[in-house]
Computed example of a mutant assay.
Amino acid sequence: MILGKCPYCNGKVIAIKTTAHGKKVNLYTCENAKKEYDESESFVFTADSTCTFRVYSNVFLKWNKRSFSKYEMKKLLEEDQVIVRLHGRRGTSEYFKYVITDKEYGISILWDEEVSKKEEEEFLISS
């Protein structure tokens, strides 16, 4: 499934079902970001890779968000940022943060930027 254009090379970002640490997840990857196992069993980019954009759907598990959805990735690629709902350690508190693409990590949370109450309400209505 094609989700949009890569923010770095304008290639197609696709969703691939894969397994990471024994769990089934979606991998959102640029078609030009190819990886393989090398002789030391490390997962490395191939010699013909021209991009490094890759994001696993379970990227926010640390903040009790089970999955970064295809819809959220598509919106991020279209609008350069997306709002996500995260949860505290015990899952009782919730908070909203902006997510942007990041050259090194794929995506990053903007911890210092506050999402307005109006945007939170719009997010809750649309989800």
Rank of each mutant, 00 (worst) to 15 (best):
M1E: 13
I2C: 06
L3E: 09
G4R: 10
K5Q: 12
C6G: 10
C6M: 07
C6Y: 00
P7Q: 08
K12S: 12
K12V: 04
I14F: 00
A15T: 04
I16E: 15
K17Y: 08
T18D: 13
T18A: 05
T19V: 10
T19I: 10
K23P: 00
K24E: 15
K24M: 09
V25D: 06
N26Y: 13
N26M: 13
L27G: 04
Y28C: 05
T29Y: 00
C30K: 11
C30T: 02
E31D: 11
A33W: 05
K34V: 11
K35G: 06
K35T: 03
F43D: 02
V44M: 02
V44D: 00
F45S: 02
F45C: 01
F45G: 02
A47Y: 03
D48V: 01
D48M: 01
S49A: 06
S49M: 02
S49N: 03
T50Q: 05
T50R: 01
T50D: 01
T52G: 05
V55M: 05
Y56G: 00
F60L: 14
L61M: 12
K65L: 15
K65R: 15
K65E: 13
R66Y: 09
R66E: 06
S67Q: 11
F68G: 10
S69H: 09
Y71G: 13
M73Q: 09
L76H: 02
L76N: 01
L76S: 02
L76Q: 03
L77M: 02
L77I: 07
L77S: 03
E78Y: 07
E79R: 12
E79V: 04
D80I: 07
Q81R: 15
V82Y: 03
I83H: 03
V84G: 09
V84E: 06
L86V: 05
H87I: 00
H87G: 04
H87K: 14
G88R: 04
T92D: 14
T92W: 06
S93K: 09
F96I: 05
K97A: 10
V99D: 06
V99W: 00
I100T: 15
T101W: 03
T101R: 06
T101D: 09
E104P: 00
Y105N: 15
Y105L: 14
G106L: 04
I107L: 14
I107Y: 03
S108Y: 02
S108M: 11
L110Q: 12
L110E: 10
D112C: 02
E113I: 13
E113F: 01
V115W: 04
V115A: 08
V115S: 03
S116G: 05
K118W: 04
K118L: 11
E119Q: 08
E120F: 03
F123I: 02
L124G: 00
L124N: 11
L124Q: 07
S126A: 11
S127V: 05
